[in-house]
Every structure is written in structure tokens, then in C-alpha cells.
């Protein structure tokens, strides 16, 4: 048991150190990584729902709502203060998550996915349509806010965003792991395997799922506002259903069910996407699609699964017996 935990912690620490050192090499890589990690937060939210066996094809709406909330607050306060913008974004996404979650947790599987899709497309359409308020398809610019009262130039600001995002990622990764180990978190897995029995135990499945849903909405929102402030803009495109699909894609790519997988997947995805779009301008979508297929068909454990196989270590919990492990290694369970 201790050996497994050490392996996990080692991997996490190594990743953090590497990432912290990288920006000393290339400036623009900082921004790329910041956005990748922010998306990783949204993917973390998806992962929580995958635990419950549900896929949401609409989490881009929380990502986008939060980004626009930050943009509006920034505009109304003439630039604003970084933590106020982030707080506003987080608050809006949590509120929206609660409002929508209350309806959506009554549904399962395809209907859950489709309802989320519908709500996110409604938001997308509103963001595009109400041009005079939201700037339509051009989106809203987010001017650099002050950081704890200080006005920063572009380069120091990007450093701040990078380390802030990294810090939040590490903190939230730990937090989510704790949550998933707690009774409420375990209840999510029960929603997947046998919801009725959960209710027999006296726990409300809906309540457990709602908590998970709101948490995932908050994570997606946090990612959205962080990424958008870094980028300096919020566009309706970030609410489109294909974006939600990308979050799910990354969850599987990284290794569904693992916290580290969400971020590893996000970093790899953003990197591949940037370089593919730059060097294979015509066929980058095809490249990504092929990668996804390869992962699903040959490496269903995602990147973390591959790392496990290569190092021979168990990086996730579970039995060392391959037959039992294979059974346990179903999506979202570990």
C-alpha cells in the first residue's frame, strides 16, 4: 500500500518540478501550459462525473459562463482585480452548476449527456446572438487585471498566472482525491454500478450526483476563467459542444479515473494540438482523431495506463493480479 502511494506521489512531484522549470526555457510555453492546466481542471470535473458513469457533453458551458463572468466584472470595474475576477467566475459557475444540476441529475446516460449538450448550446447561442452585450462571435476582451493591487506588465503577469494555476491544480488535485475517497465520492461509484442499492442504503443517489455535478461545474468554471484571463479574451466558441467533447477526449486520453491523468492528458493534448495545427495545418483534426482511436483501441488506460505498463509499477490503486486489474480498470473506476 505504502509503495503504491509513494509511486503516485513521486510522479506528481516530478511532474510539478518539471513544469515549474520549463518556463525558464521558453516564454510562450508558459502560456501554453497555463491554458493546458486550466483545461485540465475542467477535465478533472469530467472525471468526477465519469466516476458516476455519466458523461456530460455540455461542461463547456461552465467553462464559458465563468470566463464571461470574469470578462463582465473586469469591464465593469475598469480592469479589476485578478482574484475578484476569478472569484466572480467561480461563483457564477457554481451557481449555474447548481441551477442546472438540480434538473439534470434526474437523468442518466444518454439523456444526461444530451441535456447537458442542450443547455450548453443554449448558452452558446445566447453568447453569439446578443451581440451588443456579449460582443457576439468576436467575444469580449479581458484586459490585464491588477494583482493584489499591483499593475503588472505582460511577462510578470504571465508568470503569476502560471504559478497561480499550477498551485490551484496541485491543491485541487489533492482535494478531489480526498473527496473521491470520502463517502460522498464513493457514492458516485455506486451510482454507476448499482444506483438502487445505494438508495436502499439510505443515501440519495441524486444528492450524491448533484454534489459531484456542482463540484465539476466549479472546476470547469475555474479552468475557464483562468484560461481566459491568461489569453485575454472570452469567445462563444469555448461553449460549443465540440469543446465539451474535447474535455471528454482528454479525460480518456489521460486515463479516465485518475487525477494525474486529467492533467497529463491536457498537457499532451494541447501540445499535440498546437504542433499539429502548426505543422499539419490541413489534417490536424484527422491526426487527433486517429490518436483518440489508437488510445481507445489499444491503450484504454490512457497515458497513465501506458506509463504503468512501461514502468511496471501500479500507479493507480487496484490489484496486481492482471485478471482482476483488467476487470477493475474499467472507465472511471480507479
Amino acid at each position: 500500500m505504502a509503495g503504491r502511494l509513494n509511486a503516485q506521489a513521486l510522479l506528481a512531484v516530478a511532474a510539478v518540478v518539471l513544469i515549474a522549470a520549463a518556463p525558464l526555457m521558453a516564454q510562450w510555453v508558459k502560456v501554453l501550459l497555463t491554458i493546458a492546466l486550466a483545461k485540465g481542471l475542467a477535465v478533472l470535473g469530467i472525471m468526477i462525473l465519469l466516476r458516476a458513469g455519466q458523461v456530460s457533453f455540455g461542461h463547456a458551458m461552465f467553462y464559458a459562463a465563468s470566463a464571461y463572468a470574469g470578462a463582465f466584472v473586469g469591464r465593469w470595474t475598469g480592469g479589476g482585480e485578478l482574484f475578484v475576477l476569478i472569484g466572480a467566475g467561480l461563483a457564477v459557475s457554481l451557481a449555474l452548476g447548481l441551477a442546472i444540476g438540480v434538473f439534470v441529475v434526474r437523468y442518466r446516460y444518454i439523456f444526461f449527456a444530451m441535456l447537458n449538450l442542450a443547455f450548453s448550446m443554449v448558452l452558446f447561442s445566447i453568447l453569439e446572438k446578443f451581440f451588443h452585450v456579449t460582443g457576439g462571435s468576436d467575444g469580449m476582451r479581458i484586459a490585464r487585471p491588477t494583482v493584489l493591487g499591483m499593475e503588472l506588465e505582460r511577462a510578470p503577469f504571465e508568470y503569476v498566472m502560471f504559478y497561480l494555476t499550477l498551485g490551484l491544480v496541485v491543491g485541487l488535485a489533492w482535494g478531489v482525491r480526498r473527496y473521491l475517497a470520502s463517502p460522498l465520492g464513493q457514492a458516485l461509484a455506486a451510482v454507476k454500478s448499482n444506483e438502487t442499492r445505494l438508495e436502499y442504503l439510505g443515501m440519495s443517489a441524486r444528492h450524491a450526483l448533484l454534489v459531484g455535478y456542482v463540484l465539476s461545474a466549479g472546476l470547469a468554471g475555474l479552468g475557464g476563467v483562468l484560461a481566459s484571463i491568461t489569453q485575454g479574451l472570452a469567445t462563444p466558441e469555448i461553449a460549443y459542444w465540440v469543446r465539451s467533447g474535447e474535455f471528454v477526449f482528454i479525460a480518456i486520453l489521460g486515463g479516465a479515473g485518475t487525477v494525474a491523468g486529467a492533467f497529463a492528458g491536457a498537457v499532451v493534448y494541447e501540445g499535440v494540438r498546437s504542433y499539429a495545427a502548426a505543422y499539419f495545418a490541413d489534417i490536424w483534426q484527422m491526426v487527433l482523431g486517429a490518436v483518440l482511436l489508437a488510445i481507445i483501441l489499444f491503450a484504454p488506460g490512457g497515458l497513465v495506463g501506458l506509463a504503468e505498463r512501461l514502468t511496471g509499477r501500479r500507479l493507480r490503486g487496484g490489484s496486481a493480479d492482471p485478471a482482476v486489474a483488467a476487470d477493475q480498470a474499467r472507465v472511471g473506476e480507479r
Binding site: 516564454q27 510562450w28 502560456v31 489569453q231 485575454g232 498546437s274 495545427a277 502548426a278 495545418a281
Partner: peptide
Amino acid sequence: AGGEHVLSEYRRLVQ
């Protein structure tokens, strides 16, 4: 490839 891609490629080309 999207506005975000344009901005990050812009930075990469410049830097």
C-alpha cells in the same frame, strides 16, 4: 483552428 490558436501561434512566431 480558433482564436486561441491564433494568439498562441502569434506568440510562438514572435518569440
